[in-house]
């Protein structure tokens, strides 16, 4: 990893989404009355760049700082230091949702657990229409909902149903439809298939891939699964203990890892016989 890769080129059009030196620490509960409360550094100086239409994989194991990075990239939390820029404009988490409407129209999220990320008391129609409503998107919302549901392969007869009536894969399709509704340019996906069965996993990945190509979406894919990253991402960033240990083109990093941790990670992945040769 060279630092030059992540600093913006002067004069050029700013990249779609970029982060500079993101750091975030959390205070831990006190164990003694003396001294300052203990602190955990969740993220230490992370830089990243996502070009227009690019697909960036963020790889790391539990505790690496993936979720913290995700929250910062989505403007849900403020870094202690560092900045997140979208097309050169700073994204600052704010209590007033109006401040970030411009950003949320461009960047949407799909979370890991398709059961937990859909409100059990809301109907599919209202779930998918939520970003349209909140972001004040123009046009016929009902028609748009049917349109994006069709894009993820769901019929309009699901509109009045509740999340618990669907299988895991279908629920993840609903979550993807919600993210697509305001026609974003960036989709941030947090372990989008790790809660799904193998056969469903392939289909959801196919769907994400197809949508990315067809709609020209840029992707940030947070995952512990190298297979998923290998399949969808052109660039990859390896996180360990809150720091980036390696980043570069997916092919390069996975074929010729330079950092020992990346190598360890690659070696640990169980491989199906018949894949290796």
């Amino acid at each position: 990893m060279t630092h030059a890769e992540t600093t913006p080129e002067v004069g050029a059009t700013p990249p779609l989404l970029q982060a500079h030196g993101l750091s975030r620490s959390y205070r831990l509960p006190r164990r003694s009355l003396r001294g300052p409360a203990p602190v955990r550094d969740a993220l230490r100086g992370v830089d990243l760049v996502l070009p227009e239409g690019g697909a960036l994989g963020v790889v790391g194991e539990s505790g690496a700082g993936k979720s913290t990075l995700l929250r910062l990239l989505l403007g849900l939390d403020r870094p202690d230091s560092g900045r997140v820029l979208f097309r050169g404009r700073e994204v600052r988490a704010s209590r007033r949702p109006r401040d970030l409407v411009w950003f949320r129209r461009e960047v949407q999220v799909v979370l890991q657990d398709p059961m937990g990320s859909l409100d059990p008391r809301a109907r599919v129609r209202d779930i998918v229409a939520e970003p349209l409503e909140c972001l004040g998107v123009d046009g016929d919302h009902a028609a748009r909902v049917v349109e994006v549901l069709a894009a993820v392969g769901l019929e309009s007869d699901v509109l009045r149903r509740y999340p618990h009536e669907f299988s895991g894969g279908q629920r993840q399709r609903i979550a993807i439809a919600r993210a697509l509704a305001p026609s974003p340019t960036v989709l941030v996906a947090d372990e989008p298939v790790s809660a799904l069965d193998v056969s469903v996993r392939a289909q959801v990945l196919d769907l994400l891939e197809e949508l990315a190509v067809r709609l020209g979406l840029a992707l940030v894919l947070v995952s512990h699964d190298l297979g998923v990253v290998q399949r969808l991402c052109d660039r990859v960033l390896v996180l360990k203990d809150g720091s980036v240990v390696e980043q570069g083109l997916t092919g390069d990093v996975l074929a010729r890892p330079t950092h020992p941790y990346t190598r360890e990670l690659l070696d640990a992945v169980p491989v199906l016989p018949g894949m290796a040769g």
Binding site: V213, V228, R231, T250, V269, M275, G277
Partner: peptide, 15 residues
């Protein structure tokens, strides 16, 4: 289709 392939490369169309 979703497994990691140590010999494989990034998908062509995304690369």
């Amino acid at each position: 289709a979703t497994a990691f392939d140590p010999t494989g490369n990034a998908p062509e169309h995304m690369a």
